[in-house]
């Protein structure tokens, strides 16, 4: 055992979200990063704070004070510097849920969705052309350049159609497996933002619920 009388210092960086399974033991190690003298650190990390109880449901909250309290129980003289979050949100995952997300979708399903997107975007561009009156504009430009009028200026319109594909590939920076450069694509950025929003929202809801459960207990 360490000498508990000396003025040891411990820095705690409490995590924001911890994923856990039901009935899992939550040690300091799971909840927080600890910086301290190596031997002390090992002992502190082994301290048990709580267990994931069944009643908690989807989530529970452990406050930083509970963590500090748990450490103080073992090492009353220790100076604890707490940085990081005030609460840890325990995100409780049931096993079945995890597995569902990991399995890859069936081939036929992917093809079906792709087909919808394919036909849908084809319809969308046709509607767009009809909506903005692209035809007359093309006829006009054709007449200006060629000097003769043409009801179906395909010479202009076929390259135009290919250009749409090129423009979209430039914008999205990729076509199927091939990426043009290493920049993140706008879609990846959008995806990232969207996922962050969803996570943040569900977190906010979970912490709300967990706080309510906590209040109900006391």
């Amino acid at each position: 055992m360490l000498d508990k009388g000396t003025k040891e210092e411990v820095f705690l960086r409490v995590k924001r979200v911890v994923r856990a399974e039901p009935n899992q033991r939550l040690d300091i190690k799971d909840l927080s990063e600890v910086v301290s003298e190596d031997k002390l650190k090992e002992e502190i990390e082994k301290i048990r704070v709580k267990e994931v109880v069944k009643e908690a449901g989807d989530s529970m909250i452990i406050t930083a004070l509970e963590i500090i309290g748990a450490i103080k129980r073992e090492f009353p003289e220790l100076r604890i510097e707490h940085i990081g979050e005030a609460d840890v949100i325990i995100d409780i995952e049931k096993n079945s849920k995890k597995n569902k997300h990991q399995s890859s979708p069936p081939r036929l399903y992917v093809i079906f969705v792709s087909l919808i997107l394919f036909l849908g975007s084809a319809m969308a561009i046709m509607n767009f052309h009809a909506d903005v009156g692209m035809g007359p504009v093309h006829q006009r430009i054709y007449q200006m350049i060629m000097g003769v009028s043409n009801q179906e200026p395909l010479l202009l319109q076929v390259p135009y159609s290919l250009g749409i594909a090129i423009g979209m590939i430039i914008f999205f920076n990729r076509f199927y497996k091939y990426k043009i450069d290493d920049d993140p694509t706008p879609l990846e950025i959008e995806m990232y933002l969207y996922e962050n929003k969803v996570n943040e929202f569900s977190l906010a809801q979970k912490s709300k619920r967990a706080k309510q459960i906590k209040k109900g207990k006391h």
């Binding site: 792709s114 394919f118 046709m126």
Partner: peptide, 29 residues
């Protein structure tokens, strides 16, 4: 996300791009 096709984004994007080009061609031709 809804359809659980996070890993198939590339394919879906390609489908959209091809759809646009083909739709435009069909419209003019």
């Amino acid at each position: 996300r809804r359809l659980g096709l996070k890993d198939e984004m590339k394919l879906m994007l390609s489908a959209i791009i091809l759809g646009k080009a083909l739709g435009s061609l069909v419209y003019w031709l």
